[in-house]
Structures are given as C-alpha cells and as structure tokens.
Design a protein around this nucleic acid. Structure first.
Length: 271
DNA sequence: ATGCGGACCTGTTAGC
DNA sequence: TGCTAACAGGTCCGCA
C-alpha cells in the first residue's frame, strides 16, 4: 500500500495527536509481522513521551529519550488515530494508548510491515544503515544518479527502485517518474545520459511532492491518520492504465512485468 | 560486486 | 454463481 508520500501523509496526520504526548501503555495483540514485534516493546514505551516523529525513506521513526521505535508499513500496513472505544477489527496488531485519550492503532493484513525498537542511533540500525539518500533532499541530484549508475547493467526502473540507490521510490511513483522524464523503464541504467538523469531526478521530486500535497494515492484502502483517503490517484499518468490512451500522444499505455513488478509506459513518449 | 528470484501473508479481482 | 489462480502499493536474503 504505502509508498513515501503515503508514509509522509500518515506522519503528518498522526503527529499533532502524538507529539509531546506520553504513551500510557501498549497492547500487542499479534506479534507476527515481518519480524516479531519485540517482546519488550511495552516495557520500553510505557510512560514515555513521544518527542517527535520523523521519516527515513518509508520508515517512521518515533523519538524517545532513551531510544527510537521504527515502523514500516510494508504493503498493507496503516496507522490511525482512533478513539479508545473504537471497535477492534481483524488484523489490528498493536494499540498505543496515549495520555490524551486517543489510541494509535497499527493494522496490517499482509504482515509485511514491522515495528522495531532501537536504543542506539536510528541511522545505525541495520535496516536504515544501507538506505540511499532521501529523494526529496539536495544530495539526491543528477550527478549522484549518473555516477552511481555507471557500469550498471540493470533496467533503470529497477535501479531507481533499489533502496540503496535512493530510498522511497516504489512501484507507482517509479512508473510515473519514468513517464514524466520520457525514459523507457527497460533502458539500461548505465547507458543513460547526465541530461536524462536531470530530467528523471526532477520528475521523481515533482511526482513525490505532488502526491504528498494530495495526501497520497489511495488505490484500495489507504487512509491517512485521520481515516481520510488520498487524492493523487486522479493524477496518475500511466500507473494501472494499461490499454488506455497515453495522456500526451494517445497511443495505448503498455504493461510489462519488470523485476516481477507491473510496469506501465508509453512506447511513443518513453525511449 | 551485481543482479535476479524466492520468500514472507492475506484480500481482492479476473477468468474459467 | 462459484471455485481457482493470479496479482497487489515492499524489501530482505541467499544464490549464481
């Protein structure tokens, strides 16, 4: 479900309810996620104040005096603020009871997400340490992508979806950015010019910014922390539009599986 | 070092 | 209409 814009939308949605609030207790109903929820999570968090919530790639990083809680939403995870008497649904894994009477609730049918604790620097955590630059930061630019891609044989789509290259570009926005930049998704990463990487970097930043402004893309059931959907879906140019006319040249949008992921593109507009 | 495929899991949709 | 198979927004890991 969530890519970077959806994670950022979630962060912004829940932050006002949680920043500088304390966690009274934690109820873990189902520890089974990508990695088991730490048995000591409740001990770590009870009575502790949430100092801030930041984002690294698609990870949410909850800051406390004595450590950090990392949450990844995987493919189907969501975090919502609910009332304390809110009915518990199937796949509601974890509740954090907040001292303002609200509850932060983690829901994840496919269990690909994760909730972890780290007492050290979060950036040194095994899962964050290898992440590439933030796509919306200044260090992510054409020079970086161009240098990083030299001698690489893989398809450019797989290249930009590799989290060690740049973190947070998932399947929806990889498809959209390649369309906006006019680059065929199968083109070899190492053979793309500096100028074309300039266009691609701009496209990635633009599409992510636009999606964040629209509250993310709701395909099936994504909702932000307040339970509202995102509205970027209406602005998708190629994603899930196979067979429909390209919005620029009217040729039908093509669908191809690249690296086991659905890839949508226009043969006329993307070379 | 690089790149690929399998693995994790459930719900929804497409096709027969 | 009902059953089965394929597919879905992620990414880590092991193998060649």
């Amino acid at each position: 479900m969530p890519e970077l814009p959806e994670v950022e939308t979630t962060r912004r949605g829940i932050l006002p309810y949680l920043k500088n609030k304390s966690i009274e207790t934690v109820a873990v109903r189902n520890r089974q996620l990508r990695w088991p929820v730490p048995a000591r999570l409740k001990n770590h968090l009870s009575g502790q104040k949430i100092l801030d919530i930041t984002r690294r790639g698609k990870y949410l990083v909850f800051g406390f005096d004595h450590g950090h809680m990392l949450i990844h939403l995987g493919m189907s995870g969501s975090l919502r603020i609910v009332k304390s008497n809110s009915e518990i649904r199937k796949h509601d894994h974890i509740d954090w009871l907040i001292n303002n009477g609200r509850v932060l609730r983690y829901h994840d049918p496919r269990k690909f997400g994760s909730v972890l604790w780290t007492s050290g620097e979060p950036g040194q955590h095994k899962l964050l340490k290898t992440l590439g630059p933030e796509p919306l930061s200044d260090t992510f630019d054409a020079g970086y992508l161009y240098e990083k891609s030299r001698k690489r044989q893989l398809a450019v789509k797989n290249f930009i979806m590799n989290s060690t290259v740049v973190t947070g570009v998932g399947n929806i926005y990889a498809n959209e950015a390649l369309f906006l930049a006019g680059i065929h998704p199968l083109r070899q990463a190492g053979k793309i010019s500096f100028e074309r990487y300039e266009a691609l970097v701009t496209a990635i930043k633009n599409v992510l910014h636009a999606a964040i402004e629209q509250g993310g893309t709701t395909l099936r059931d994504f909702v932000n922390g307040d339970g509202n959907p995102g509205y970027f879906r209406q602005q998708l140019r190629v994603y899930q539009r196979a067979g429909q006319p390209c919005c620029v040249c009217k040729k039908p949008v093509r669908l191809l599986s690249i690296g086991q992921r659905a890839s949508y593109y226009c043969t006329e507009c993307q070379r």
